[in-house]
């Protein structure tokens, strides 16, 4: 059909894409050697902090699929963390110990919840979407506080961790560290592929001009709903890991402040970028830790820092990295 040489497609994009792949791999590589460095950096405490950061990175990456690529501002994404954590905790409490059956349950239930609430929420747009996703999260929050059989308001301490063929892979320590890292790497790669795929292209286009996408023959609602469900399932996996790490589940995981935190991570890191949510989550968890080491009242610094970043920067951390490379 075409006599044009095909391989020269989008040569402008090739460089930055490869660079973003490299930056991401370097970050993951640095994370991978953390356990070796941990004796110098503060031991087990440091390790568990990095695990927490990686878990939030998974949640932030999954949020970016709807927030960044899809342009849907979900203000209730912590609900999936909560669902993942509670499904895990309740399963362990009820005698289901296998990690795979538990993960399957987590994916199934968080996916089903996303399907139902997404189908309702996506009837609205803009600020109404923000508020209705928040409302669903609040409903789950209050349901969990009244689950007195599983700890109610106070939460529930878990006495077991999931096992894989008799191994306690998800017990605190390097087992949990590397299983989290592997899941993070997989999800990081998967979400980027998804965003760049035919599916993701339609999703990204619908963020810019949904009517036009519809007039090209795509059912925008279906694309958005699928993205929402996948995002919810992946955030559910983060909830599973959170329960394993904390050995504790609590309704506060689904609070709107946590949802706000996830948004901060994605936006600070850089919306709809390959490494943005990853860097953003690591940055936020670590900076909070560092600030809280300096002063008990670290929020007095972090709050204004947020405001200043919003007022004076564009494109988040990923944008900063890109700009530096481009100019220097």
């Amino acid at each position: 059909m075409s006599e044009l040489p095909v391989p020269d497609l989008a040569p402008v994009n090739r460089g930055p894409l490869d660079r973003s792949l490299m930056i991401g791999l370097i970050v993951l590589g640095l994370l991978a050697i953390m356990p070796l460095l941990s004796p110098i950096l503060g031991g087990d405490y440091m390790l568990s902090l990095v695990i927490k950061a990686m878990i939030f990175a998974i949640a932030a990456i999954s949020l970016d699929l709807v927030l960044g690529y899809g342009g849907m501002v979900s203000f209730g994404h912590a609900v999936f963390l909560g669902i993942g954590a509670y499904v895990t905790g309740i399963a362990l409490q009820e005698g289901v110990y296998g990690a795979f059956p538990i993960l399957a349950l987590v994916l199934l239930i968080s996916g089903a919840f996303a399907l139902i609430t997404g189908a309702i929420s996506l009837r609205t747009t803009g600020v109404y979407f923000i508020m209705i996703t928040l409302a669903f999260a609040q409903m789950v929050y209050f349901s969990l506080t009244s689950l007195s059989y599983y700890g109610g308001d106070d939460g529930l301490t878990l006495w077991d961790t999931p096992e894989v063929f008799g191994m306690y892979l998800f017990q605190t320590g390097s087992g949990l560290f590397y299983s989290t890292l592997v899941l993070l790497a997989l999800i990081w790669f998967f979400v980027w592929r998804l965003a760049m795929s035919r599916f993701g292209r339609v999703l990204r286009a619908a963020k810019q001009n949904p009517t036009r996408v519809g007039s090209l023959g795509y059912n925008v609602f279906v694309y958005r709903l699928i993205a929402y469900v996948i995002s919810g399932m992946l955030a559910g996996v983060a909830g599973f890991l959170l329960a394993c790490q904390a050995e504790f589940i609590s309704p506060s995981t689904t609070s709107w402040q946590i949802s706000g935190h996830l948004i901060i991570m994605v936006v600070l890191g850089g919306l709809a970028t390959r490494n943005g949510p990853l860097l953003g989550a690591l940055f936020v968890v670590l900076i909070e830790e560092i600030l809280s080491q300096i002063t008990h009242d670290w929020r007095l610094i972090f709050g204004p820092l947020l405001v200043l970043i919003v007022l004076f920067s564009k494109g988040g951390l990923a944008g900063l990295l890109k700009n530096k490379r481009a100019t220097g």
Binding site: L67, V73, F75, I130, G260, I263, I264, V267, L268, L271, R299, L300, F302, G303, P304, L305, L306, V307, I309, V310, L311
Partner: peptide, 13 residues
């Protein structure tokens, strides 16, 4: 999104 972020920072502060 920027508004949510900045005002969230004010809440923390």
């Amino acid at each position: 999104l920027d508004q949510v972020l900045a005002t969230f920072g004010i809440i923390l502060f």
